[in-house]
Design a protein around this nucleic acid. Sequence first.
DNA 1: CTTTTTTGCACAATCGATGGTGCAATTAAT
DNA 2: ATTAATTGCACCATCGATTGTGCAAAAAAG
Lengths: 352, 352
Amino acid sequence: MKKDSRKKATIYDLSMLSGISPSTVSAVLNGTWRKRRIKESTADLIRDLAEKHQYTTNRQAQGLRSSRSGLVGLMLPVYDNRYFSSMAQTFEAHVRQRGQCPIVVSSSRDPREERETAENLISYSIDELFICGATDPDGVHQVCEAAGLKHINIDLPGTKAHSVISDNYEGGRTLTEAIIHHFPADDPLVPDELFLFGGRNDHASRERIRGFRDVKRALLGADPEASIQPTGYSPNTARIAFETFFEKAGRLPRALFINSSINFEGLLRFMSAHPHETFADLVVGCYDYDPFGSFLPFPVIMMRQDVEGMITKAFELIEETRTPPKIHLIRPDLVPPRTALTGPLDGLKDIV
Amino acid sequence: MKKDSRKKATIYDLSMLSGISPSTVSAVLNGTWRKRRIKESTADLIRDLAEKHQYTTNRQAQGLRSSRSGLVGLMLPVYDNRYFSSMAQTFEAHVRQRGQCPIVVSSSRDPREERETAENLISYSIDELFICGATDPDGVHQVCEAAGLKHINIDLPGTKAHSVISDNYEGGRTLTEAIIHHFPADDPLVPDELFLFGGRNDHASRERIRGFRDVKRALLGADPEASIQPTGYSPNTARIAFETFFEKAGRLPRALFINSSINFEGLLRFMSAHPHETFADLVVGCYDYDPFGSFLPFPVIMMRQDVEGMITKAFELIEETRTPPKIHLIRPDLVPPRTALTGPLDGLKDIV
DNA sequence: CTTTTTTGCACAATCGATGGTGCAATTAAT
DNA sequence: ATTAATTGCACCATCGATTGTGCAAAAAAG
């Protein structure tokens, strides 16, 4: 009876089997059947049949017709660190809860690749795009705008669409204060013992640096220009910066403000080439949270960005296209050294 | 002239504008035009027009017609740890290189959710599915099989399709040996000072445990049953196991074989509740690599699973459906303490 | 027992791209 | 100058679901 069981059943198959027209089958299965005044009994019949034949709707056909795919895109710079991977995890949970399907891609912080990635996603008729940590959010905006695609910026702000980002200035202040206060009153930090490494000339780095400087000036009385060492977002350039500093100064600073966990990995690389004693009295503040990072042999104070809060806010705002673009700040949390926070993993059932 | 510029141009638009038939336009733009004996000049004309109007093909329509979407799926248990996030990163790179689009989803180690996730991906007519770390790979296989979808298991093996997994037995042996050899000859480890925590009753855990026991018996002469403490793959159950042990024994074992970085996070949670001295002479081996984990205050020996190797092998094998299902083992690498390996992040350009 | 209203569903066009088929016009062969 | 072969492209059905429209049959109103 059934044709090749390898081919999925379609509404036409169900139509043939039941003698009911394809349009009615469709209406029943997509829930619009009441509006179309289909008899309850007819609906039941079709639903049974659909179940029996394991019918699932072909989303390509559905999407073609309705020009909505049920796909929601998230564009990330990279997957492979705790900040972005928890972003992906949280995003996915939200999307699936709305009955849609997440499609997460990375674009390597390259403006051209960002635009091409967006184009590519658009060719799949995605319904919405979350642009996270883009180097050129406004470039991506143009592409989305041209296709009439709803979109929102996360992590790094743009000027053409709403943005939801970490409160980098306040976060930078808080972290800097925590670093300074970590030193005892009888042996306090002095201005040229506290350096900021990492980041580049983007909104997040600028704001964090501004917070860093403001607090440094206020609490330590001075803020030498040289205490800011932007390195880009790469472990390797950060490593080189640490090496260079170390060779010049003969030691690391007593205290480091590291701009991201990616840059922190640069410190790890530096560490692997130097004996443990090099870090005996080091204090690190890192703008990102990584559970293992929190337990290194020296005190590591971390800022956990509120990923859940950012994603939630972004979902609220993505519908909002009437009001002029605005930047929404989400406060990050200070995480003291040796702290293991719970995360998305804790949502899973504990099966042994 | 142009209609709503918010709507993407279609082959019909280009057809109207050029006076050339849609089928010819299509042939030119999808590359089959030589086979269809289209004049070079006609092709040029259409390509110019396509460029001018920023034409991109509608993948839904294309997919509907050809029943191939260009989407390649990866199903993960979770995103949020370095092993799986590097899996996602590596997978994406391979897929994009083949001109396809990655679609990564997580399924929480829940057999039902795994099958439903697969169904959902299938409804998007994905071309291939990589099933990574699935609790019930054979269940997912059934779903794929019914839809005629090519698929392959990674990380945890199934019996119905090819599997590419870490060489858990050899890895387990190597790691156990490394732990034991980390202790000096004048104060060697004794059998009941080395415990294995984490994992559950899955293929990976069983093989690692087998390697652990074999080496332990060979090098230490005995292997008490109690030295294996499966906890499932959750930070919290692992934490509880450490707490329980600690309360009973008054201390942690001198050496730990931890089954995964997720379980290692359970140790972090335990650590946050105990003073630093508790871990003064601890040696840890962890079956997974995390750069920050490698630099904890005690020696941490890690096994890095060869994600790149596994993904590469999986892409080779997924085409191979004639031969009976086989398990392909990929050797992991031993990573000594205080080692910062490079990873996918290093592929990015270093922009400051 | 008509006329009007409501119910229940079928028909057919549509979304955009693809590929088999057919048919002029051009070129080559005889 | 015919016939045969080749070139260049148009036509049309198709993939599967959606939706506006139309039309019988059943029910309600008169």
